[in-house]
Amino acid sequence: MNTEPTMQLPGQWSTFGVGYDWLFYFIYWLSVVLFVAVVGAALYFVVKYRRRPGVKSEPTGHYLLLEIGWTVSPLILLVMLFHWGFAGYVSLTAPPPDALDIRVRARKWSWDFEYPNGGHSQDELHVPVGRPVRLILSSEDVIHAMYIPGFRVKRDAVPGSYSTLWFEATHVGRTRYFCAEYCGAAEQPVHEADGTDRYTGHFSMNGWVNIHPVDGPAAESVSGENTWRSGWASYLENVLRAPIDPATGHEVTPAQWGELLYARNQCNTCHSVNGSAMTGPTWQHMFGQNVDLADGTHVLVDENYVRESILQPAVKVVRGFNPVMPSYQGSLTDRQLDALIAYIRTLR
C-alpha cells in the first residue's frame, strides 16, 4: 500500500484502498481493451473500405449468431462487475461493532467533529491509525457530503436524519477531505486585512484528516501541519478535551449529558434502564436490536429510529405498548437528541 498518488487515483490511506484500486484499474484496462477493439476496427474499416469509383458496397447480410453473441456475452462481464462492486459496497456500509464513533455536523460552510469524550474540533478531523472509525453525519441546513478521496469513501449529510460512513486508516499522516454535495457560497467575500478577498462556500468546506499514531509525542510538542504526529491518546485528552460541566467542575461526555437529560426530562417515568417494562419499552439492551412493531413489521433500533421515536413517537410504536408518548419536537435541541442517543447506545 502506498500513500503516493498514482496517475489516476489518490494515495491509499485506508483499508479500502487496495481492493478499490484493483477494481478501478480492472475496469480501466477492460475499457481500454474494448475501446481499442471497437475504435480500431472502425478506423481500419474506414480506411480499407473507403469509397472507390466502381466499387460497390456489399449488401448487408444477417448475422444472427453474432447479434446474440454480443448481446449476451457482455452480461457475463456485467454480472462480474456488479458482484465485485456490490461486495465492496457492502464492506463500505458495514462498520465493525467496535468502531470509534465520531459525530459530524455539517453546516454552511464548515464541519464540526465531536469525539466520544465530548470534545470538538472544527474543520480538522482527527482519527487514530489502525482503528475502525465511524462518522455519524448530519446537517444543520442543506445537504452536504463528506468525501475523503484517500479513504475512497463518501456519504451525504442530510438534514433531519443521520447517515454513516466508516474507514480504517492505515498510515499516519494527513490526507484531504472535501464537501462533495453542492451547497452554495456566501454572496460577498470577506475582505482580509492584507487587501485580499476570501471567498467561502461549497469549495471551501474542505480540510485535513489528521491520522495520529497510537503512541507518539505529547500533543503540546507538535503544532500546525505536524499536529498529526502527536499520539492519539494524548491528543484526545489534551486538545480534544471534554467540556466541563460548570455546576460540578467535572468533564461531561455526550453520554453523561444524555443520562442527565434522561432524568431531567422525565424520560425515566416511562422508560427504565434496567430491563423492566414500564409505560414504554426499556432502554436496556435496546440499541442495535431488531424490535417488533405494533403494525407487524420490525425495525432496527439505530440513531435514526431513536431520533424519529423521540420526535414522532406515534409513527413506529413497539408491539405491546400504547402510542401515548408526547412528541419532543421543538423541546429538545439536536445536540440534546444526540446526547440522549449516545446515552442509549451505552446501555446496549
Partner: peptide, 21 residues
Amino acid sequence: TIGGLTGLFLGTLSTDIHLHD
C-alpha cells in the same frame, strides 16, 4: 464509446462511491 465505458466505473457500486459528484 468512451462515455459508455466510463459509465461502467459509475454503475459499479464501490467504484462509484469514490467517483460520485
